[in-house]
Computed example of a mutant assay.
Amino acid sequence: MQPRVPRTRVIATAIVVMSLVALGGTLVPALWYEMFTRQEPGRVAYALLSVTGMLALYGRLLWGNLMRRTHPRHRVGLAVIAAISCLLPAVLGPVWAAALVMPAGLIPLVLPLRAAVPVTAVGALGITGYGLLLGLPTPTVVYEFFWFPFAALSGYISYWLFHVVQELREARAELARAAVGEERQRFARDLHDVLGHSLQAVALRAEVAERYLDRDEERVRKELAEIQRMARDSVRDVREVVRGYRATSLRTELDGASAVLSAAGIRCRPPQGFPDLPAHVHQPLGWVAREAVTNVLRHSSATWCRIEVTATGGGVRLEIVNDGAGRRAAPDGGSGLAGLAERIAAADGEFTAGHRGDGTFGVRAVVPVESPRHAGELRAEGAG
């Protein structure tokens, strides 16, 4: 099962916390040395204040840049972190050499990329010369020379992946809105094609009738009769459009579900090869499929949707499960699900929908192939 992608703030918080834990962990040996080996209150206080201030400022800058709240003063904050990281080994000794790499991860976030690359290269060379000047061991200096650009690259990759996930989430929401909007436009276009010509013709006939109102009653009567006929034809055409739009079947809905969900970035593979079903089974299950897929698009943050059609005990079971309902669904299940329950009950079937223990949301409908009501209708037709 693919894990659900958390919200943007949750991901940003996780990145900040993990970064601070990782950076703080590199300084724990030096801090432990000051507190439990040297045990000089002045040095311990200086170390604690420096580490606390540096990590707090680091976390603030990282959070602001992840949330795109950039500001020119962030460069001042980066300079302050660099100054503290350089002072720690100078004041407290070589045991604090790891602090020299602290500002590296923020360089590609605070500075533009075209400036971050040369600054990272200068920083790697700078801490190498500074470490030699302080008398740090050669292996430590070499290690930090390679560690500095690696830390900068790691910060940039985290920043880039964070915003890629955010943009993909926004793109998927936009695709879902586009899919719903496209269906509305299709219906509006069909309705316009049906009514546009008819209503224009009715208007012209009414103008003709008005023109002959005082001169030729027979012509007016004929025009009014024609207007009535055209109006009835228009009503019939509209009913046919609405009936075609509202009529559904399980096979039709499943054929379109995969394409619509895939366009919205939701993995879905519809079932293949299920047998032909009678109309009284196809239509209610088709309504279930349509409403369930619509709910996945409109009301969830799903990454996958599973659709299963199986034969069970003289009936057909349709089950649609997705991983993105969360807690955003209405507590009462919503009017759409209530309508589905009524439709399935009318077909002598069973309907359930709700959250499951594994964090998914499922819709399940079972319709008998030979319901008592349908069997009675067949007997009545045979007797006729």
Rank of each mutant, 00 (worst) to 15 (best):
A257V: 02
T360G: 03
A329C: 09
G131T: 05
A380H: 00
Q200P: 01
L337M: 15
L195G: 10
V366T: 14
A375F: 03
V309M: 05
G286Q: 07
A22V: 08
P284W: 04
T294W: 11
G24V: 08
L261H: 04
T310H: 05
F148P: 10
V164S: 11
V293C: 10
V17T: 13
C305I: 01
P118K: 01
A121V: 11
D193M: 00
I157S: 11
L337E: 13
D216V: 01
R7K: 02
R343N: 12
C86M: 09
L57K: 03
D233E: 15
V194H: 05
A341C: 02
Q166L: 15
H355K: 09
I107A: 02
H71L: 04
A247F: 10
G333F: 05
G333L: 05
A56Y: 00
F361R: 07
Y46I: 06
I344Y: 04
Y212T: 15
V194Q: 10
D233M: 02
R186W: 09
V180I: 14
Q39A: 00
L100N: 09
A209G: 07
F148K: 08
M230C: 05
R364L: 14
I15E: 04
T128A: 07
F36H: 12
A152E: 14
S50R: 00
R243A: 15
R215A: 14
A22S: 10
V117W: 07
V117G: 09
Q2N: 15
E174T: 11
E342I: 08
L153M: 14
T138F: 04
Y143A: 12
G324A: 07
A99Y: 07
L261F: 03
E182P: 07
V21S: 00
H192D: 14
D358L: 06
M35R: 06
G42V: 03
A151M: 10
L106M: 09
I107T: 06
W96M: 06
R177H: 15
I107G: 08
